[in-house]
Design a protein around this nucleic acid. Structure first.
Length: 752
RNA sequence: GCGAGAGUGGUGAAAUGGUAGACACGCUAGAUUUAGGAUCUAGUGCCGUAAUUGGCUUGGGGGUUCGAGUCCCCCCUCUCGUACCA
């Protein structure tokens, strides 16, 4: 027993912790300072825990234990984001109910997490698929609905009549289904939408107060995509129609030589002249068959068609032609643009192709080469009419001046536009939260709160219905119900909520998971919120993290929560890649080919061969096969089953113990950084743990500290001790666990 | 294209503008061991040298400074995100 044996030590204490609830959060004394440290909860997959999970989880666990020891009430919970597609697809294949497989997976995950020794308060576990939990997800949806933030709309989806289903953009190639090659059309279908756009400004503004990585804040800012500009109205000649176009460059209005409408606009039909009608209709039909993916592929080659109609440029008074082109998106701005080919590259390409006039209105640049988009320090030219002159003004001043002129004339106004679209909130799936909505006749109606939860019915078929509707659509005894208020026959909404719904508010449920009067106990909410530290992967930057902020702000507005933002501080752990690999390329004759000269598209011609580290040497800044000039690739790849480089945490624990796993993942490098796994690195920290053990426990299994207690340490020894304490304290406060560990290694080396 | 981040030994990486490479992996030599493993000791940025003295070194180029991996400007490369957003 004198030897370091984690397999004997760790289970013993894990059992003790579980039995005596060592890490139960006691929040009865709210005069104590609090610290709420949160992990992004996992989807309990059938393949079990990945080494990426314990990375962030270990960091938060260190902080939780550290804060507890410093006298904080610490909330450090764990739960399951358990609705989702894999469980449902597995059910379609095997007929096994997702509830059953989900339960099994959760059991597996829980066991694995406990074997790593995390100090969670397991009494606060939440599970998004538990009706007691999703009752409150539905309740929050009802509040959104009552506030007018949830609505139904016909939005275009990729519909494949042959397959009888809706397809994702990625599943559609050149207007045909990836599976079977059947035609796909973009068809409007009635879907639930959430009005996240109403919160766009606040979601953007409040980012400034958050202690989040700049990169994540930037991604959210880009996604929300606030643009300040103006809406300008253009009269259509010979009709009562006016076209409103959004622009961020009203200063270039004098250079607007044509207009473009998105093909989807109804307006196109109304203004197209009879002789152009056939051509326009053909174009619109073709455009409707394109998926968004195709549209972006055709980036370089713009197409369009003339409507035959003309509008009047309000600045120049000149007639400008109105075109239809799919480089203009219906969903952004007004779906119509004033085209300024002199100063917008897209308009320039289009004008070149269809021979439309290009006029410079900002000094500098060469518009025979490309559009002149630079504005800094530039002055306006050629922009003058009887009432207005912008000539000589810097771009910013010209914007102000022309917009106030347009406002006076009543043909334009200052506008702010966002890229953010409303959130398509319904899915045609079984394994999700049902909507608390019934349809009576043609009307949708919210169920009263006392009818919650609307439980998922038991079914034995999980396939989508042949109409492309949710599998719930066929469950007649569930679908057919009565309106509790009028007693009239009603049909339940058969779509379900997306996986994001449950994860939008789970951090609130941990606060008092058994609370029955609302999603969260208001007293305790005031104590615990906001989350002091949230750790998770960056892949949710514009999904979960934006959606959760949106819901939280709605809950704030209706008084359910007391903070404007849910997550005060955020850290993204970097992905853990597989071990460093050296790959050579071999041609059909079995000869190695230097990777240096091979273009990415030529790679398919060769067979990749993995080369052992020992047979590789460095030559300049490249790696070559020893004794040759053959350059090999040296890279770490994302862990994947197909590549066979997945590290199973269970195996690591079996060989080296949970402490070595945790310590290694913290020692690899900075938490935020992407870094490759190294089994030798695990052995390194394992050796360190063995040395620590030997320092404390002697060959007779006696605790050596007993003997040294009476020994007076030297000044030098005290200095090292205190330096270590200082360094470790500061490093934990700054989440620099790798250097905290190295300080402990230095201390241990000295102590030995 | 645009946005963000990053380039330091053979590898993962350290370094309030102040001895670059801490700590660890790997490697070399030695001790112990029947052998292997484990453990311990010493060495290990690169180029010279028998050794010492020495010279060079943080992607490239310039600048600020007594002093730059760190600050400023230009360029190159890589990673991530995003994509016709008017």
């Amino acid at each position: 027993m004198s030897e370091y044996k984690p397999s004997a030590i760790e289970p013993k204490w894990q059992k003790f912790w579980k039995k005596s609830k060592t890490f139960k959060t006691d929040d009865s004394d709210t005069s104590k300072p609090k610290y709420y440290v949160l992990d992004m909860f996992p989807y309990p997959s059938s393949s079990g825990l990945h080494v990426g999970h314990p990375e962030g989880y270990t960091a938060t666990d260190i902080i939780a234990r550290y804060k507890r020891m410093k006298g904080f009430n610490v909330l450090h919970p764990m739960g399951w984001d358990a609705f989702g597609l894999p469980a449902e697809q597995y059910a379609v294949k095997t007929g096994q109910h997702p509830k059953v497989t989900t339960e099994e997976n959760i059991k597996g995950f829980r066991k694995q997490l406990q074997a790593i020794g995390f100090s969670y308060d397991w009494d606060r576990e939440v599970n998004t698929t538990d009706p007691k939990y999703y009752k409150w997800t539905q309740w929050i949806f009802l509040q959104l609905y009552k506030k007018g933030l949830a609505y139904q709309a016909d939005v275009p989806v990729n519909w494949c009549p042959e397959l009888g289903t809706v397809l994702a953009n990625e599943e559609v190639i050149e207007g045909k289904s990836e599976v079977g090659g059947f035609p796909v059309v973009r068809k409007p279908m009635r879907q639930w939408m959430l009005k996240i756009t109403e919160y766009a400004d606040r979601l953007q503004e409040d980012l400034n107060e958050l202690d989040w990585p700049e990169s994540i804040k930037d991604m959210q800012r880009n996604w929300i995509g606030k643009s300040e500009g103006a809406d300008i109205e253009f009269e259509v000649i010979g009709s009562n129609h006016k076209i409103k176009a959004f622009t961020t460059r009203p200063d270039t209005l004098f250079g607007a030589t044509y207009m473009v409408l998105a093909p989807e606009l109804d307006l196109v039909d109304e203004i197209t002249v009879p002789e152009q009608r056939t051509e326009v209709n053909t174009y619109r039909e073709k455009a409707s068959l394109k998926s968004d993916l195709d549209r972006t592929d055709l980036n370089k080659n713009k197409t369009g068609v003339f409507t035959g109609a003309y509008a009047i440029n309000p600045a120049t008074g000149k007639e400008i032609p109105i075109w239809v082109a799919d480089y203009v998106l219906a969903a952004y701005g007004t779906g119509a643009i004033m085209a300024v080919p002199g100063h917008d590259q897209r308009d320039w390409e289009f004008a070149r192709k269809y021979d439309l006039p290009i006029i410079p209105v900002v000094e500098g640049g060469d518009i025979s080469e490309k559009a002149h988009t630079d504005t800094t320090g530039r002055k306006i030219i050629n922009s003058e009419n009887n009432e207005l002159s912008l000539n000589g003004l810097p771009v910013d001043e010209a914007k102000e001046k022309i917009v106030s002129w347009l406002e006076q004339k009543g043909s334009g106004k200052k506008t702010i536009t966002y890229k953010l679209r409303d959130w398509l909130f319904s899915r045609q799936r079984y394994w999700g939260e049902p909507f608390p909505i019934i349809h009576v006749g043609n009307k949708s109606k919210a169920l009263p709160e006392d009818k919650l939860p609307v439980k998922l019915p038991e079914v034995d078929k999980f396939q989508p219905a042949d109409t492309g509707e949710s599998p719930l659509h066929n469950v007649d005894e569930w679908v057919n119900t009565t309106d509790p208020e009028t007693g009239l026959p009603a049909r339940r909404e058969t779509n379900t909520m997306p996986q994001w719904a449950g994860s939008c508010w789970y951090y609130l449920r941990y606060i008092d998971p058994k609370y029955e009067k609302g999603p969260v106990n208001p007293e305790k909410e005031k104590y615990w919120m906001p989350v002091d530290l949230y750790v998770g992967g960056a892949e949710h930057a514009v999904l979960h993290l934006l959606y959760a902020r949106f819901w939280h702000k709605v809950l704030y507005d209706i008084g359910v929560v007391s903070t404007k933002e849910p997550f005060q501080r955020l850290i993204n752990q970097g992905m853990i890649l597989g071990e460093l690999e050296f790959t050579a390329l071999r041609d059909e004759y079995g000869h190695f080919v230097s990777t240096a000269g091979v273009k990415p598209e030529e790679r398919v011609k060769y067979e990749p061969v993995s080369i052992p580290e020992k047979e590789v040497e460095k030559n300049g800044d490249q790696f070559v096969i020893k004794g040759t000039e053959t350059v090999v690739d040296a890279r770490s790849h994302k862990m994947s089953k197909s590549r066979g480089n997945v590290i199973n945490p269970d195996e690591v624990i079996k060989r080296y113990g949970a402490d070595a796993l945790r310590l290694y993942e913290m020692f690899m490098g900075p938490l935020e950084q992407v870094k490759p796994w190294s089994m030798r690195g695990v052995e390194g920290v394992y050796r360190f743990l063995k040395r620590v053990w030997r320092l404390v426990i002697d060959d007779n299994n006696e605790n050596l500290n007993k003997d040294v207690q009476d020994v007076e340490p030297t000044r030098e020894q005290l200095k090292i001790l205190h330096e270590t304490i200082k360094k470790v304290t500061e490093d934990i406060d700054d989440n620099r666990f790798n250097t905290a560990i190295s300080a402990l290694m230095i201390f241990n080396n000295e102590a030995m």
